[in-house]
Simulated scan of single mutants.
Amino acid sequence: MTIQVFLPSQFTAPEIFPVIRDSFGTFSEIPTEVDFEFSNLRFVRPSGIVFLSNVARYLHRSGCRVTFSGMRRETNCIRFLDDSKFFEQHIGQAICEGSSPRSTTQPLREVRHEQSHNWLRSTLIPWLSISSQVPEHDLYNVQTCISEIFNNINDHSSQDVGSIFAQWYPNERRVIISVADFGQGIPNAVRTVEGELSDPLAITRAFDNEFSSKSTPRNRGVGLFDLKQNVVGRFGGRVTVHSLGGAVEFRNVDGSVNTSTYNVNGYCPGTLIDIELSTDRIEITNGERESFTWI
């Protein structure tokens, strides 16, 4: 069975979800060959890059032949994807002459749990510090929050690997970091201990204080709740989570964390987390950093 998947013009994960659902359902059957067609592409966001990358990798690892077509090399979108190392990751080489990572991005990368903490400390955080001019020691909480996402992937994904891509928007002094995995999904993990919650409510429960779906939880009180409280509560940012058929957005409203739940239009295998924050909201200190208690 061969499938051609025409990607939408808006290359964001929510725009790709219905295309994935219509093409693959819930991935109960894997086609022998899939061609992703890019000719409609007009706009790219980090969430689209990591989500499609994970889908393509999953299909390939499941024995499917994955190809890409319709890439118009003269367009800004394809050049951006190429500079982000999307095609190098999936076909082994860049497709545009002179392609190279941009200073405003941390290129697409697949990171295993055992590599994640060192990579965050040695690569992502120094890049973000240089881009934002926020000292590395004041980005410690950001590093801790993203580390917890990889802990969550390790706990709940059979692949034990996540894709990550980050983009810095200098005129807005804003960064978006997208992380995606192809695991069982947050709702399924939560339902192992909470019963039959809907997908959006299960995602919300995963971000409650001291919640864990593990029988002997590690880092109780430091997990996804800390991601929400730091990025949204302290830094005034936004965290958006898509998993299976549900989605939750945590946003700062008048100094408090506001939660919005909704159903996904389409299907999101695994979990996709978007972290968006303004680095102007991060307090610059003299180097002393807050300590966490690990139980």
Rank of each mutant, 00 (worst) to 15 (best):
Q4C: 15
Q4R: 14
F6V: 14
L7H: 14
S9Y: 11
A13I: 03
E15I: 10
E15R: 13
I16Y: 06
V19E: 12
I20G: 04
R21S: 13
T26Q: 15
I30Y: 10
I30V: 12
P31W: 11
E33T: 13
E33W: 12
D35N: 11
F36S: 11
F36L: 02
E37V: 12
F38E: 03
L41F: 05
R42C: 13
R45W: 07
P46V: 01
S47Q: 02
F51N: 01
R61A: 14
G63L: 00
C64M: 15
R65E: 10
M71H: 05
N76C: 15
F80D: 04
D83H: 07
D83W: 00
E88G: 07
Q89E: 15
I91P: 03
G92C: 01
Q93C: 08
I95G: 02
C96H: 10
G98I: 02
S100E: 04
P101H: 09
T105F: 13
P107A: 05
V111T: 08
R112Y: 11
E114P: 15
S122M: 13
T123Y: 12
L128W: 01
S129W: 03
L139K: 00
Y140A: 12
I146D: 00
I149Q: 03
N152A: 04
D155H: 06
S157E: 03
S158V: 10
S158Y: 09
G162Y: 01
F165D: 11
W168M: 00
R174T: 10
I176N: 11
I176W: 12
I176F: 15
I177W: 04
S178Y: 02
D181S: 01
Q184H: 09
V190P: 13
E194Q: 14
E196D: 12
E196H: 08
A202V: 02
F207P: 02
N209S: 09
E210G: 05
F211C: 01
S212A: 13
K214L: 10
K214S: 11
S215Y: 08
P217G: 04
V222C: 14
G223W: 04
F225I: 07
D226Q: 13
K228N: 02
Q229Y: 09
N230P: 08
V231W: 02
V231R: 00
V239G: 01
V241T: 08
A247L: 05
R251I: 14
S260K: 14
N265L: 09
C268R: 05
T271F: 03
L277N: 00
S278F: 07
S278Y: 02
I282R: 00
I284R: 03
T285R: 00
E288L: 05
E290H: 13
F292S: 08
I295A: 14
